[in-house]
């Protein structure tokens, strides 16, 4: 079996990546990881796949944290673990070193979308399109609201959100046509 992390790392390491990617205080905590594997043991996705976890996810959560420290940018960004994380925060809650594992994963996804558009999953693209086109993630079931005597929703906030996301550059970030 190929080792997850190549033994000769000189050519693959990106030292700038280690220092520059983290925009939140939480994500910077990856430096405290001492590879105890608590995050991986608590991960429901790893548990679900069991012996196939490595094949399905590429890097397991503790391997992700360590590969970040080593600056193995491509290995990290191409890992399916990023996109199949349920953001359940089990890893973060039980990390004895206070590493915000889930927040590190978020930061890595941000970086992947900025630099490697090909890695962005279809579901996430559809989500962004829904927000830009409708100002909400799913259509309101008006008839059901009427039956239950619920107040009508005006859509004022939806329109404002669409405008704000336009100003913030979401269309350009996801390469939306016409942006």
């Amino acid at each position: 079996m190929e080792p997850a992390i190549p033994l000769n790392m000189n050519t693959d390491r990106d030292k700038g990546f280690i220092n520059s990617m983290f925009s939140s205080i939480q994500a910077r905590t990856s430096a405290y990881c001492f590879r105890c594997i608590t995050c991986t043991n608590g991960c429901p996705i790893v548990l679900n796949y069991r012996e196939q976890a490595k094949e399905k996810l590429d890097l397991l959560p503790h391997q992700l944290m360590y590969a970040v420290r080593l600056g193995l940018k491509d290995l990290v960004l191409e890992s399916q673990m990023l996109w199949l994380c349920t953001e359940c925060y089990m890893c973060t809650e039980y990390c004895p070193q206070g590493v915000h594992v889930c927040d590190v994963i978020y930061e890595l996804k941000n970086l992947a979308i900025k630099e490697r558009k090909d890695l962005m999953p279809r579901g996430l693209r559809l989500f962004a399109h829904a927000l830009l086109d409708n100002g909400r993630t799913a259509e309101i079931m008006d008839w059901e609201r009427e039956d239950l005597e619920l107040p009508e929703l005006s859509g004022a906030g939806d329109a404002e959100l669409q405008e704000l996301l336009g100003q913030l550059g979401l269309p350009q970030l996801i390469d939306k046509e016409g942006s």
Partner: peptide, 18 residues
């Protein structure tokens, strides 16, 4: 009335600032 979508986890996956 002006409340919108919260800006949920998929948005955080795309951009922390947004």
């Amino acid at each position: 009335e002006r409340f919108s979508c919260c800006g949920p986890v998929p948005l955080r996956s795309i951009s922390f600032d947004m």
